[in-house]
């Protein structure tokens, strides 16, 4: 249990600003962000669009450099992307020249695994995301939801300690989104991967997470955080519960107060 409590990721007083390309004026994006993540916890970060939540995730992934503050992963500063912190993007970003099977095998191949070894592993993970039998399809032949399942398998097959998700279901239709949320909830229970999910969908954030951070509009800072009291495994009926609605309103209120002023 002590191992479970260990914090893998530490974000400490993180600031970030971009230089606007047209006039060179610096644009503050992140304002004093601090939080910790690890131990198989599911964290959601919600906020209005353009608040810098994707930038935050990109920094954690190692896609963008740390300007000010510290981002430590297992005690080491994050300087580049790593399969330990796997990302699922808003669009699936599958490699269109590879089949579904080859897409999922991509990371295992880079890790030096032989075809004979990864073949069955890839099949297991495709089954896990309910995509068995689609091995030889090309991404363009799949629907958006199916592509995102493959992207999930491609990340999870590397057994990352941390899964970073950047509005992964935002581009999907409403029904598919619900199905994907259920799938993610199941998988996260099964694999106990730490997840950081960035989303603007408050219900999604609440339904999936153990902890929710609410971000302000730009420059983004945390204006509210709450521990979600509902036990896992959760079921669909939770969405209709009064306590769920109350928390949802609390978070929405937080965001609206921001937008108004």
């Amino acid at each position: 249990m002590i191992d479970n409590q260990q914090q893998e990721l530490i974000i400490d007083h993180l600031y970030m600003s971009f230089t606007r390309p047209d006039d060179g004026v610096p644009l503050k994006v992140l304002d004093n962000i601090s939080f910790k993540a690890g131990g198989g916890e599911f964290i959601s970060i919600v906020g209005p669009s353009g608040c810098g939540k994707t930038t935050l995730l990109n920094i954690i992934a190692g896609f963008e450099p740390v300007q000010e503050g510290r981002v430590l992963y297992n005690g080491q500063p994050v300087v580049k992307p790593s399969p330990e912190r796997a990302m699922v993007f808003q669009s699936a970003v599958l490699f269109p020249w590879l089949t579904v099977h080859e897409n999922v095998a991509y990371g295992l191949k880079r890790a030096g695994m032989k075809t004979s070894d990864y073949k069955s592993i890839v099949k297991d993970y495709l089954k896990m995301v309910r995509m068995q039998g689609f091995d030889d399809y090309y991404p363009e032949q799949l629907s958006g939801g199916m592509q995102q399942r493959v992207a999930l398998a491609r990340a999870l097959v590397l057994q990352p300690a941390m899964l970073l998700m950047d509005e992964p279901f935002a581009a999907l239709d409403a029904q598919t989104r619900l199905t994907m949320q259920e799938l993610l909830l199941d998988l996260q229970q099964e694999l106990s991967t730490t997840v950081i999910l960035v989303t603007h969908d408050v219900e999604e954030a609440l339904y999936l997470a153990d902890r929710v951070y609410v971000m302000s509009k730009r420059p983004g800072r945390f204006i509210h955080d709450l521990t979600v009291p509902f036990k896992k495994p959760r079921t669909f009926s939770l969405r209709g519960a009064a306590a769920f609605a109350e928390l949802k309103t609390e978070i929405l209120q937080c965001i609206f107060d921001q937008v108004d002023d």
């Binding site: 992934a61 896609f63 580049k80 992307p81 399969p83 796997a86 990302m87 993007f89 880079r110 890790a111």
Partner: peptide, 24 residues
């Protein structure tokens, strides 16, 4: 985004070239 996906999945500079940039 392909390059980021490749890096995140463990591609180094060389394999990024042969497995992402060339096919793309």
């Amino acid at each position: 985004l392909y390059l980021r996906a490749g890096q995140m999945l463990g591609a180094n500079r060389f394999s990024l070239f042969t497995t992402i940039i060339m096919p793309a």
